[in-house]
Computed example of a mutant assay.
Amino acid sequence: MAEKALNGTRTQRVIVHSLIVRVTHWVNAFAMVCMVMSGWAIYNASPLFPFRFPAWATVGGWLGGSIAWHFAAMWLLVANGLVYLAHGFATRHFRKHFLPVRPRDVLHDARLALTLRLPHETGVYNAVQRLLYIVVLLFGVLLVASGLSIWKPVQLAWLTGLFGGYEFARRVHFAAMAGVAGFVVVHLALVMLVPRTLPSMITGRARRVVHGVTDA
């Protein structure tokens, strides 16, 4: 249903996120939280660096429990990711929403974002968002690949070798996790700055201006 706006145009609620995009988004959010928190518990059992994560930020209770959480979340993440990728390619979701990504567009939108002057339309990704989504998808692939090389370093010796050995694969896995965590922080910050984007990821609909509509 359209509603008349103050400037004489009309606004109308339209679909901006498909059901599959919404479901996979929330499943992915749940899986990533479980993976990161259980991964931090696993890290604490054999730290790579001179720090540990606080116990309240971990799940599993003990190493075996945390590993069980980690693998369960991993398979959920992989299955959910395959559904999202299949949907993205079949419907051209990636091409329509994430491409093209041009350096000059990214720099332009980044400058506007840093000065809080970047306009936002729900369901439309700016150049910075498109780049971030592509990067986090690549981080996800890197997480799974490096995680498998750590899990099965003998059976998947060729994969572990691609990462430069078991110890370096652990560091790659940690760096990819840090990249995903950083994306989540930025993503949540943007949601807080533009809170109207959240309801559309639940309902799938947002209000858009409809041009050329006149009263009967």
Rank of each mutant, 00 (worst) to 15 (best):
M1N: 12
M1D: 03
E3R: 14
E3I: 12
K4T: 06
K4E: 10
A5T: 13
A5C: 11
G8W: 03
G8I: 03
R10H: 15
T11P: 06
V16S: 07
V21G: 10
V23W: 05
T24W: 10
T24P: 05
H25F: 11
N28S: 15
F30S: 14
A31F: 11
M32I: 15
V33D: 07
V33H: 12
V36N: 03
G39D: 09
I42S: 08
Y43N: 14
L48I: 08
P50N: 10
A55N: 05
V59W: 00
G60N: 03
G61V: 00
G64W: 04
A68T: 02
W69C: 06
H70W: 01
F71V: 07
A72E: 00
A73S: 14
M74K: 06
L76G: 04
L76E: 02
L77Y: 13
L82M: 07
L82I: 14
G88S: 00
F89G: 01
K96I: 00
L99W: 08
R102T: 01
P103N: 04
D105W: 06
L107S: 06
R111Q: 06
L112A: 14
A113R: 12
L114E: 09
T115C: 05
P119W: 01
E121I: 15
T122F: 09
G123W: 00
Q129Y: 00
L131G: 02
Y133W: 03
L137M: 14
L138V: 12
F139G: 00
V141Q: 04
L143D: 10
L143A: 05
V144Y: 12
V144Q: 08
L148G: 12
I150K: 15
K152D: 09
A157I: 09
L159S: 12
G161V: 11
G165I: 07
Y166G: 10
F168G: 05
R170M: 05
R171M: 13
R171L: 13
V172A: 03
V172Y: 12
H173C: 13
A175H: 06
A176S: 14
M177R: 08
A178K: 05
G179E: 02
G182I: 14
F183L: 04
V184Y: 02
L188W: 07
A189G: 13
A189C: 11
L190S: 05
M192G: 12
R196Q: 04
T197M: 05
T197N: 07
S200I: 01
I202L: 15
G204F: 00
R207S: 15
V213F: 11
